[in-house]
Design a protein around this nucleic acid. Sequence first.
DNA 1: CTGAAAGCGCTAACAA
DNA 2: TTGTTAGCGCTTTCAG
Lengths: 331, 331
Amino acid sequence: MSITIYDVAREANVSMATVSRVVNGNPNVKPTTRKKVLETIERLGYRPNAVARGLASKKTTTVGAIIPDISSTFFSELTRGIEDIATMYKYNIILSNSDQNKEKELHLIDTMLEKQVDGIVFMGGEITEEHIEQFKTSRVPVVLAATHDETNELPSVNIDYESAAYEATKHLIETTKSQPAFITGGEHIQSNGLKYEGYIRALKDSSIEINEQIVIENEATYHGGIEGVEQLLKVAERPKAIFVTTDEMAIGVIHGIQDRGLHVPNDIEVFGFNNTRVALMVRPTLTTVVQPMYDIGAVAMRLLTKYMNKEEVDENTVILPHRIIERDSTK
Amino acid sequence: MSITIYDVAREANVSMATVSRVVNGNPNVKPTTRKKVLETIERLGYRPNAVARGLASKKTTTVGAIIPDISSTFFSELTRGIEDIATMYKYNIILSNSDQNKEKELHLIDTMLEKQVDGIVFMGGEITEEHIEQFKTSRVPVVLAATHDETNELPSVNIDYESAAYEATKHLIETTKSQPAFITGGEHIQSNGLKYEGYIRALKDSSIEINEQIVIENEATYHGGIEGVEQLLKVAERPKAIFVTTDEMAIGVIHGIQDRGLHVPNDIEVFGFNNTRVALMVRPTLTTVVQPMYDIGAVAMRLLTKYMNKEEVDENTVILPHRIIERDSTK
DNA sequence: CTGAAAGCGCTAACAA
DNA sequence: TTGTTAGCGCTTTCAG
């Protein structure tokens, strides 16, 4: 059928082992022999079979990436970070969407392990005992990206959501001298819980009495943002500011406010989270927390390569810096 | 090391062949035997090695997806379509970014072929002779998604960009009775050429004398849109409408217009392309051409499964329907 | 319905 | 520096 290493060996009058050596850049080959082999490889159009190599060497140079939803801006930027570093280290990525669904996640881990990936980058909502169990059924390294593991058993790359939310809230409190509203996308996303904690801590810190009525949960989409404002504005006293846990929701919030004839930031200030590209694509431009998504992916993948090479790793839990970028949706 | 089919066979007192049969759902196994095998698989925690299977069966149940940039909304939605259908047919996806770079594309095709993918979904700018050559070095099926192949040698799934652009332009001509400006992202993206052709055809069709000054090319980003308007508005006569070849650019255009104190659509109408999620996330909401990105991916993947199964395919070149959705950025 | 045995294409000792 | 020889873990005839 197709050309194998054996064909090349025969044509070049050497052994398979020698061909294998030149293909793998092993230095123990006489230059003239190498040249000869290289020429017949070229002539025959030989292409090494990575599957056979994987079986023999027990390394596939592919890693699995489990992601909630590639079509979300947040994760697609993150994935790009993973992919770039993977390419840099000669790995390929098997990508799968989990929709944050635990059964799917578990099943995907299994499938990737069957495919003998050399490592896994996992992004998801919550890490449960079952996830840990599943990972333990094999000893391939796993790194979490933008995903929290309460048990702290797994290496991970994150930002400090709690502090980021604290700072954003604090910022809003300082300009408005009052409790900002909080619009969030649901607790099944782990980081939202942390953001809420930061929000609450900032309020307590400023001795503000907490009004739970202006804490709104809705779908983490643009429309969820619009609806969130509608719910919020039914409340007697209108808040002077709103902290929203994703940019996309925040843009919905801004438009929801504007649709009611109110002004951002004069009537209500709006604060987003993530600094996705859309944060600039709205008027007024969105003040937000910069979460370096690309970097989270890149660092997670880099970390994974270290584990795969069995290198020393001094820090299993990486916290990347975040910062606040002020634009026109706040004063 | 880890459990193999041989271990299971020994423990269950059957042959490897029998274990292989039950794992692969071969019906020629006595129910009691099947049960026994299944139990010891469970007990031992056996996980089939897909790499070994791939080597023996010459099928990997993974397909390659080559994509310009996963972090772009357009392609990430498309990829989601590919992935969902792939999952449905039990395939996994190896995903790689090409940045529309020909060398990278060629190299990626090679890598995927080495990994013995069962098929490839290719998204890119231009298909050259070299691409075709590269694909021909193996007989795995290839399907193009949202990518044009002038030679028409490869199966593909697209929409009719030329007609879509024609219709959009026509629409603008009817309301403004004049030549709309054209802001585009560069000719290296094949579809932009087709859109331009449609634009020109519409102008000719309406016997409008073509003013090339209001045809602007810039980077296909939000900022490229803003800059595009700036260039455009330096021209003596202000156009009454602008047709923009991507939504993201179109939003830049809208903001660029608004930043100059002009009104959309009263002073200038804006027409986008793709109907990505951001089309709704702007005020005024964007009139645009609906290109079913998810469906393009899904249909491309479905088509690929047919080729991989050697099924009859009656239509190699699929053109999916597009439509125009009028929102508030046009009158 | 089940088993034996020959590969799939390559790597990795081990010899030479 | 090069070749020989076992596997890697599974599928797939072919017999029975």
